[in-house]
Design a protein around this nucleic acid. Structure first.
Length: 262
DNA sequence: ATGGTTGCCTCGCAA
């Protein structure tokens, strides 16, 4: 089995004890981290390597930033989402691990929707769609994991009406997300569970965690060849309830090995 | 109730 986690840690420096504890106990084979909020030189590489991970980082000062951790050998295949060389935001990292292509992403938030941030989000999603189309051409199994900043459906939100015009839920956002899925991808959690209220993010404000006012925005999208190997997908709410928690909690997908595929 | 919280490394911006 291959277990892959995604977690928006909201600053790797502020979260290091929580992240190290979770990696030790959950011990995923691969971990995709978002919002590390530091440059590659400031990433706590040694502490994570001590847990048995190879480390690849696409960093940025203060904002964004993604990392890919793998206990197995990996080859980095991309350090930016193709399609806009002028885009300097650190939001995408991709590697080959065994026969699997793994992309870790931090999709733009997009709020406020009447600012340039929203068109940037939609443009980023269009670039992601183009990149997925290219990956599908190869027929190599692949998986995208990360903070998509997209609430796919009303059951993924504690109060859909309140979020109707938010950049994470408005119609144009969900339309772009569906057009990505319609290329032939499988969203791992929803393929295996039909429970409403399975959230991955709770705002720091307004006692959102205590009231379970959450949203589900951290996802795994699988190519057909990867979806054939999908075994499980789970949200680990544990880390969100600990002191000094990130506002996101980890999601873990389990794939059968290539040799075990049906 | 246009509030509230966290992290960046500033005295505001992003989420």
């Amino acid at each position: 089995m291959l277990r892959i986690a995604t977690w928006n840690v909201n600053s790797i420096k502020a979260r290091l004890p929580n992240v190290l504890d979770w990696l030790r106990t959950a011990a995923p084979d691969v971990a995709l981290l978002q919002e590390i909020k530091c440059e590659a030189a400031g990433f706590p590489q040694l502490e994570i390597e001590d847990l048995g991970y190879n480390v690849a980082v696409v960093g940025q000062k203060s904002y964004n930033g993604v990392a890919l951790l793998s206990k197995r050998p990996m080859t980095v295949t991309a350090e930016a989402l193709p399609g806009d060389p002028a885009d300097e935001q650190a939001r995408y990292i991709e590697a080959e691990i065994d026969d699997l292509r793994v992309g870790g992403l931090y999709l733009p938030n997009g709020n406020p929707v009447d600012s340039p941030k929203y068109p940037y989000k939609l443009a980023w999603m269009a670039r992601l769609r183009d990149h997925v189309a290219a990956l599908l051409e190869s027929e190599q199994p692949f998986l995208l994991g990360g903070d998509f900043n997209v609430i796919p459906a009303p059951e993924d939100c504690y109060d859909p009406a309140a979020w109707a015009d938010d950049a994470l839920f408005r119609l144009d956002t969900r339309r772009a997300y569906r057009s990505l899925l319609n290329l032939g991808l499988t969203e791992a959690y929803r393929a295996l569970h039909n429970d409403p209220g399975a959230y991955s993010f709770w705002d720091y404000q307004r006692r959102a965690w205590e009231l379970d006012n959450g949203i589900r925005i951290d996802h795994f999208l699988l190519s057909p060849q990867a979806a054939d190997r999908l075994e499980a997908c789970a949200i680990d709410r544990g880390p969100r309830g600990l002191p000094k928690a990130s506002d996101h909690t980890p999601v873990v997908v389990t794939l059968r090995e290539a040799a075990d595929a049906a």
